[in-house]
Amino acid sequence: MESAILMETSADNIDFMIHGIFSYELFGHEVWITTSHVCILIIMLVILTFAVIANRKLKHASEVPDGFQNVIELIVEKLDGMVMGTMGPKAGPKFVNYISTVFIFILMSNISGLFGLRPPTADYGTTLALALITFVLIHFTKIKNRSAKFIWEDLCSPLPPWLPLWVPINLISIIAVPISLSLRLFANVLSGTVMMALVYGLLSKIAIIWPAALHVYFDLFSGAIQTYVFCMLTMTYIGQNYEEV
């Protein structure tokens, strides 16, 4: 009987791929607007609406916070505490805006699977872009804060600076940072998306209420953990360049 349930709903209605909506020509290449773009636009609209409402509310902020103002202050305080606690008082204030923006965007993207969207972070383009911004920030702050001598010594690090045998291995470890950052986020969200698509596609006859538990794990818990990990690693990599040597 169980196999009959599996047989009736064949593999045809499993769907977790990115779909193109329409294509256009750009410098002779065919470029597609996909479902990921649409989901990112929806998430941006939600965040923008929240920001505009919060801005209106805080223009008439009261000394004793009430209702909605409590929520905004709680979010800002938690994000401030997270960034300041990890990056320290010197680098923290410079990066709190960026890290908070990325945190809110990735969190909203990850939990958008709950609302029937395909999470944009399950598209490698999105996560690679985020990781490349981190990569550029790491090396920008490094060049800004460290002398050329220190960077060269760091590049040859286990061996003395006049013996640059270790440089290729250190270069590989530098390039591995954005790749591992982006693949970690991408694969985690994608695995959740695929699992939910398999549950809904193969077990659609008996998928009544219990997939909610899976949604809590794959979308909420895993999404929040991966958001935290991405921001934490970004902060540690950038914060390294501000520490006293």
């Binding site: 693949l183 694969a187 985690n188 994608l190 695995s191 953990i225 991966q226 935290y228 990990v229």
Partner: peptide, 20 residues
């Protein structure tokens, strides 16, 4: 613990990616 576990998970996810 959760941060370390999430980082340790990466190698397994590489295998999953290759499979997908």
């Amino acid at each position: 613990m959760l941060l370390g576990q999430a980082v340790a998970e990466t190698t397994g996810l590489y295998g999953l990616l290759v499979a997908m």
